[in-house]
Design a binder for these strands. Structure first.
Lengths: 346, 346
DNA sequence: GCCTCTCTTGGAATCGATCCCATGAGACAA
DNA sequence: TTGTCTCATGGGATCGATTCCAAGAGAGGC
């Protein structure tokens, strides 16, 4: 009588088979869409499954088949606009093909990243997509060696194993700098991350390459590098503007620094783009609402995520034995012109 | 000889046991930290596990123990600032206690939500946190009946099963309206979602309650409701401002509408707060960079996520039999004063 | 010396699926 | 009728862990 709180035993394949009057084997064959099934058996099993509300136990399936249909996604944070766009698009694309995402936010912490990778391997994920710190190469190698495809997204160290879908940071920086040069600027300040960071290094190279192509040289005093922090952006801006020969344009290589640079410019009463032109690398949703709307380099998050999904699925589905991988692939950056760039004052 | 591409067979507990010269039972007991183990056996097993690089197979563990240490997180999108903050914080808190998150983005689509919930049940998740459409009550009930704790976050329909950690929308709207009233406004426009949406209904009630407390009545002409779209915000603003008795202040009840309202105000040359004061419900990162910085109602995403994590873990750990649940719990909203509110022009 | 009690250990069943293998039933040709 | 071949089906092993149960080894009291 006392049925409140009673938990119905979960329905297993055996229950379905008995209800349908067939063996487990037959029931399994019907539900996994195999061939060699009589129409009669098929109908009875399907009816039984529907009647009992049967739901396969994926843990059991995984144990037997060695596939979980789970993919790990490892990234720094979800606040960065590129990152949450990527998480969302990747999840959708993987789901379209029957795979689910285990979300792991590392906070750019190397040890945490390592723990997550181990944990994902324990969960027997079929693949891993990692926007990585680049400091767990040995562990990634071990994971790849165990037959789990790893795809590095956006950035990766040159010796990272597995495949890669990378943002073309160098190209993006080149585009930004070129755009400022085309507008007539000659003194272009650089505010960006440290050279040790891959993105910092590549973006600086793009900046330098564009200057060189225009027959200019990199002026060390116009280059300020520092941590990915709002407060650094503020200080860097001060360092550049409080000079006699202040730059007429700025290339801000990451959005963390931009968060410091933009309010500080406003604070100082420096008008953009009349007093100084500016391009930020990485698009953040509110840049288009800023006054003036900020011209940016878009690294193509959605496209990166689509590609990452396709390639990790391809790697999963072609199975381990076949290590043939396309290796690195780069997604070009795009200049999004808004209102923060104009000709320099003469 | 041909070792390239060879996949090392995964190391199982049996391998560890053999390496250590004990039985699987003993090895299992050591690694799961059980009692009644001789120091000698413990050392040998631990050494063997380390030597072989043993990693438990969670699918096998789950099959046996009926716990996966996986929790499903179902939400609309990751673009909304509250949502990605929640996803991030929730993931961190659950990870602290050894649980991982399967991420499911529904795009507010009811069928997709249903599919995700079924899939999560198949994956034998230990619990589900859902920022739901509120239109899958029967399915949620079935899942709860099967012994999987469900926690509704931010909003839920009144008849939703399981526990709930809700944003206090009504309170937030009340705070916003009260703040505008305190500044001296009497004609306060309302731009918000449809009454069918829970949040739309509650926020309108809060707005109305604040007016009533101040001895005012709701003026129908100052209330505009519509879909959660940028374009609606734009139209709603036009409808309110193109009147003879235009409001002196606006309460914008969701950030989607705000995305339309704010640029449109700027477009029209309406000065905030001099011409019109404004409060938005929901904080979005760039609101503090807008000119003027927007005064907002913060629904406390981080706190919501912390609470959700704690409560879903508590529900998981007290096991099924015990249906005692605290039921709904509300997290108060907070007024974040910035620069978009001032006294009305006399 | 024997009995009991505790501590440690191994054997075997179990979780819920998949899938290899063998077998029985028909179909069809010789 | 008999042999061969195909198709549908069931039995049972298997994936890799956990855990119940029984049993062996000592310790200690009588």
């Amino acid at each position: 009588m006392e049925s409140v709180g009673t938990i119905p035993r979960t329905v297993t394949l055996l229950d379905v088979a008995q209800e349908a009057g067939v063996s487990r084997s037959t029931a399994s064959r019907v539900l996994s869409g195999a061939t060699s099934i009589s129409a009669d058996a098929r109908d009875r099993v399907e009816a039984a499954a529907a009647k009992l509300g049967y739901r396969p136990n994926r843990a059991a399936q995984s144990l037997r088949t060695r596939r979980t249909r789970l993919v790990g996604l490892v990234l720094n944070n979800l606040v960065n606009a590129s990152f949450h766009a990527i998480a969302e698009v990747l999840q959708q694309r993987l789901d379209d093909r029957g795979y689910q995402v285990i979300l792991c936010v590392t906070g750019a912490d190397e040890d945490r990243e390592a723990r997550y990778l181990e944990m994902l391997a324990e969960h027997q994920v079929d693949g891993v997509v990692v926007i990585g710190t680049g400091r767990n190469v040995a562990l990634l190698e071990r994971i790849v060696a165990e037959g789990i495809p790893v795809l590095s997204l956006i950035r990766c160290s040159p010796d990272a194993p597995g495949e890669a879908v990378l943002a073309d940071d160098s190209d993006g920086a080149y585009l930004a700098t070129e755009h400022l040069l085309d507008a007539g600027h000659r003194r272009i300040g650089y505010i960006g991350g440290p050279l040790e960071a891959n993105s910092g290094r590549e973006r600086f190279h793009g900046y330098a390459a564009a200057l060189t192509s225009a027959g200019l040289q990199v002026v060390d005093d116009l280059v300020v590098r520092g941590p990915f922090l709002e407060s650094f952006g503020e200080k860097a801006l001060a360092a550049l503007l409080d000079r006699d020969d202040a730059p007429t344009a700025l290339y801000v290589a990451n959005h963390e620094a931009a968060f410091g640079v933009l309010p500080e410019l406003r604070e100082r009463g420096v008008s953009v783009p009349d007093d100084v032109s500016l391009i930020c690398h990485e698009d953040v949703s509110w840049f288009r609402y800023w006054q003036p709307a900020i011209t940016v380099i878009d690294n193509g998050a959605a496209e990166l995520a689509e590609l990452a999904a396709n390639r990790v699925l391809a790697a999963i589905e072609r199975g381990p034995g076949d290590a043939r991988s396309g290796r690195a692939m780069r997604v070009g950056a795009r200049l999004v012109q808004r209102a923060s760039v104009t000709n320099p004052r003469t």
